[in-house]
């Protein structure tokens, strides 16, 4: 199964719509609830990151029998120092993002914690692509 979702930068009212749809789909497929939680937490963190930091983005979801592949591609400022961005507590989020309950520098590390495989591609002033894989078994 293959799905695509557009994400609009700055629009917190719809942040989480894609993650919610993926959760419903995985439930219908009978995937174990602990795996579903890992998938949707990682995806939701990534979705919020696009809304918080980028101009726009696309989420590509590829569900196969043995697992799920998520590609979250955005057009945005990129990440100048990936290892710094992966440090718990480091954040460049604006005060408006913090008012929404995010921007504490926990997103990328939490994605990594929940993923079986996690890779970041980024180009400053162009954008960032996250590759997340989670196995079902």
């Amino acid at each position: 199964m293959y799905f695509e979702y557009k994400v609009v930068g700055g629009d917190f009212t719809i942040a989480g719509v894609a993650s919610s749809q993926v959760k419903k789909t995985l439930k219908q497929l009978g995937i174990d609830s602990s795996i579903i939680k890992r998938v949707v937490v990682a995806l939701y963190e990534a979705e919020v990151n696009v809304v918080a930091h980028a101009y726009e983005g696309v989420i590509y979801v590829d569900i196969k029998g043995d697992g799920i592949k998520l590609k979250v591609e955005d057009k945005g400022p990129g990440i100048p120092d990936v290892s710094l961005a992966m440090t718990k507590g480091f954040s460049t989020a604006s005060s408006s993002v913090r008012e929404m309950g995010f921007g504490a520098g926990m997103g990328l590390p939490n994605i990594s914690d929940n993923a079986d495989s996690f890779r970041i591609e980024t180009v400053v002033d162009k954008g960032t692509t996250l590759h997340i894989e989670i196995k079902f078994h």
Binding site: F12, G16, K37, V41, G101
Partner: peptide
């Protein structure tokens, strides 16, 4: 004390 759509979404994702 956070009353917005993201507190509901977070509860949803966190079961």
């Amino acid at each position: 004390g956070l009353s917005n759509a993201q507190s509901i979404r977070t509860a949803e994702m966190s079961d």
